[in-house]
Simulated assay, not measured.
Amino acid sequence: MTMNMIPMCKQTQTLLNVPQSTGGGHGHKFNPRRQKDKVVVVMGATGTGKSKLSIDLATCFPAEIINSDKMQVYEGLDIATNKITREEQRGVPHHLLGFVDPNADFTANDFCDVTCLAVESILGRDRLPIIVGGSNSYVEALIDGYDYNFRSRYDCCFLWVDVSVPVLHSFVSDRVDQMVENGMVEEVRDFFDPNADYTRGIRRAIGVPEFDNLFRNGPLLDEKTRADLLEKAINQVKDNTCKLACRQLDKIRRFRNKGWNLHPLDATEVFRKRGKEANQAWERLVSGPSAVIVSQFLYNVKPEVPTNLAAIRKTATLAAA
């Protein structure tokens, strides 16, 4: 799957430098009629396009994004943790992205505390908080923890981007190859510490411990043995990423059994296409239907609202005026 990205037009913000004033910002205000404030949560296994969907929604509605990936909260290793790039962010403010010391531990409780502050800050600017990431344990702690305090304060809309497992595994394998081509091995090598603890901080991320044997012993080995270790490490990254995707899917299915109102969006066809056809399938199967769901969630619009994104943006503008 290849989909074109629009260049960003504005610097992103982290929670550490979020302005506290209400209103303002680019775009129209988010001001639906509601009894409780509303939050959108985008879920899915790794590689399914969650970040892309969150950006699509944030350019359709006045919104800001809160990262819920437990490895992407850390500074550094942008390639290995697959952080969304400045270009891909397209000027949409992001929170909880690359702001924690890589050697520190950032727990689910820490995530809940900081996310609640971010949500209130975003709502204070009349914008929609969109929580997106693959760490479902963090999302579960936020939604069902704190004696259900989050649910008592906010209405939540859950979007689930789903891709069939065989198609997703093939894509994940190709994505790892692309990450290697983009410099992941060199990035992780620069971060290597022979005394490091792989149970703490960012070093728990898939794509870090798998290379330990190569970096620790590689300089003492011949070229062929080093090449074999490199290939083995890359294959381990692929295998572990696919296993992670399966665990994520199992967790999401359990959320459904717990009564979470998930809106599944099957993106399998998107990943079977390339270029323009992939973009068209994405809008038809994922971003368009998601915008309709969010429109209904925010503004109580009728189901016959068009799935064309341009029309939905116009509807959202009129509703928030």
Results as ranks from 00 to 15, higher is better:
Met3His: 15
Met5Cys: 11
Cys9Glu: 14
Gln13Ile: 14
Leu15Lys: 03
Ser21Trp: 10
Ser21Tyr: 14
Gly27Val: 01
Lys29Ile: 13
Pro32Ser: 09
Val41Phe: 06
Val42Ala: 05
Gly44Ser: 06
Ala45Gln: 00
Ala45His: 04
Thr48Val: 14
Thr48Gly: 11
Ser51Gln: 00
Ile55Arg: 01
Asp56Gly: 06
Cys60Thr: 09
Cys60Phe: 02
Glu64Tyr: 01
Glu64Ser: 15
Ile65Ser: 00
Ile65Val: 13
Asp69Phe: 03
Asp69His: 09
Lys70Tyr: 11
Tyr74Ile: 15
Glu75Cys: 11
Glu75Pro: 06
Ile84Lys: 07
Glu88Lys: 07
His94Glu: 00
Phe99Thr: 09
Asp101Phe: 02
Thr107Met: 01
Val114Leu: 04
Leu117Trp: 06
Val119Tyr: 02
Ser121Trp: 09
Asp126Tyr: 09
Asp126Asn: 08
Pro129Asp: 06
Ile130Asn: 09
Ile131Ser: 03
Gly134Val: 10
Val139Trp: 08
Leu142Lys: 03
Asp144Ala: 05
Tyr146Ile: 09
Asp147Asn: 12
Asp147Gln: 12
Tyr154Gln: 01
Tyr154Ala: 07
Cys156Tyr: 13
Phe158Cys: 01
Val161Lys: 11
Asp174Trp: 15
Asp177Pro: 11
Gln178Phe: 00
Gln178Asp: 11
Glu181Ile: 09
Glu181Gly: 14
Glu181Asn: 14
Gly183Leu: 00
Met184His: 12
Glu187Thr: 06
Asp190Gln: 10
Phe192Cys: 01
Ala196Pro: 02
Tyr198Leu: 10
Arg200Ala: 04
Ala205Val: 12
Arg216Ile: 14
Pro219Val: 00
Pro219Asp: 00
Leu220Trp: 15
Asp222Pro: 02
Asp228Val: 10
Asp228Gln: 10
Glu231Lys: 11
Glu231Cys: 01
Glu231Met: 10
Asn235Arg: 04
Gln236His: 10
Ala245Pro: 04
Arg247Gln: 12
Gln248Val: 14
Leu249Ile: 14
Asp250Asn: 05
Leu262Phe: 02
Pro264Gly: 05
Leu265Met: 10
Thr268Trp: 04
Thr268Ile: 00
Val270Gly: 05
Phe271Asp: 08
Arg274Met: 06
Lys276Cys: 07
Ala278Thr: 02
Ala281Gln: 10
Leu285Gly: 06
Gly288Arg: 04
Gly288Ser: 02
Pro289Asp: 05
Val292Phe: 09
Gln296Ser: 15
Tyr299Asn: 00
Tyr299Pro: 01
Pro303Asp: 15
Val305Lys: 01
Thr307His: 10
Asn308Tyr: 07
Ile312Ala: 00
Ile312Asn: 07
Lys314Asp: 08
Thr317Ala: 09
Ala320Tyr: 09
Ala320Ser: 09
